[in-house]
């Protein structure tokens, strides 16, 4: 009987995961093969949803938007997080814990509140950003109408939400680097910048890989920010200029009652994320075996 105990301890996770994680995922694969009205009938249509999807320019548009927003949010975010972590790791920093804790404030703030504030900051007529740009004779920029500007707007919100989380992860990793490595580097004549490039970055490599993987998975699923900006409607702007894949999924499934088509988008997104994770895994294995 003792042999069963460990399984019982971990059962809660697996039971809940099976019900709320595994089953919906598998069910999505099934629904994707149907013309499925959530409140009406279902007809089996095989892979038609997928062939339709790959010839649907709205899908490619959403895919482009998703990647653009992912790059625009992840790259600056990780660089900023690394920089902030370095600052927070400084032994001469006073109130270090206060600053460290405050990094998490954007992360624990409701996304809805964040979006309202950012939408207002980036407003066309009365936004603070455009007011500031106006002092330099630039703009006003219509951040929600222009494609690139809208991507910057969404990316800024994503960055705002996640930079603190990544900063703390980097900070934890920084603190785990032995001091004597830096001392040895200093004796060899490496200054602060050289120490950062040749000691800090290589030591952080596994953690950087981890944050890239997590940001990729999160970045491909950006949903709340574009959804809240996209009002009224679910198209992510009149030209679908900031509609991400998940918002496209939601529009089709819940706005237009096309659960089958929405599920096909979900399955495609799932496969994309799997592909990206595999690439990440292979890359990171190669990088770590370089040593």
């Amino acid at each position: 009987m003792d042999a069963a105990a460990p399984y019982a301890y971990i059962a809660p996770f697996f039971v809940i995961f099976a019900v709320f994680g595994l089953f919906p995922t598998l069910f999505t694969f099934y629904v994707a093969l149907f013309d499925w009205n959530p409140i009406g009938g279902q007809t089996f249509i095989g892979l038609k949803n997928f062939t339709d999807l790959f010839s649907d320019e709205r899908f490619w548009n959403a895919l482009r938007n998703t990647f653009s927003i992912w790059v625009l949010s992840t790259v600056p975010q990780l660089i900023l997080a690394l920089f902030l972590a370095q600052l927070l790791n400084n032994v001469r920093l006073k109130f270090a814990n206060l600053f460290r804790m405050s990094m998490l404030v954007p992360y624990i703030t409701s996304v809805v509140a964040t979006t309202i504030v950012f939408a207002s900051l980036f407003g066309r007529d009365y936004g603070l950003i455009n007011g500031a740009l106006g002092l330099f004779g630039v703009g006003p920029i219509d951040f929600k109408a222009d494609t690139l500007a809208s991507h910057i707007l969404v990316s800024t919100m994503v960055l705002w939400r996640w930079f603190g989380y990544n900063t703390l992860i980097y900070l934890a990793a920084l603190q785990a680097i032995p001091k004597d490595v830096y001392e040895a580097a200093a004796i060899d004549g490496a200054g602060g910048f050289k120490q950062f490039i040749f000691v800090t970055i290589p030591s952080l490599r596994p953690v950087i890989i981890f944050t890239v993987v997590v940001s990729t998975i999160g970045g491909l699923q950006v949903f709340t920010e574009p959804l809240l900006l996209s009002s009224p409607g679910l198209t992510g702007g009149a030209g679908r200029q900031y509609q991400t894949l998940t918002l496209f999924l939601y529009e089709q499934g819940f706005g237009n009652f096309q659960f089958g088509y929405g599920s096909a988008i979900g399955v495609t997104l799932f496969l994309l994320i799997v592909a990206f994770s595999v690439i990440n895994f292979l890359l990171s294995r190669r990088i770590s075996s370089d040593d």
Binding site: A4, Y9, P12, I16, V19
Partner: peptide
Amino acid sequence: KKKITAILAGGAALALL
């Protein structure tokens, strides 16, 4: 005691559902 805890843990999951 171990067995009871185990049963309780599993039971809690089911109760939640």
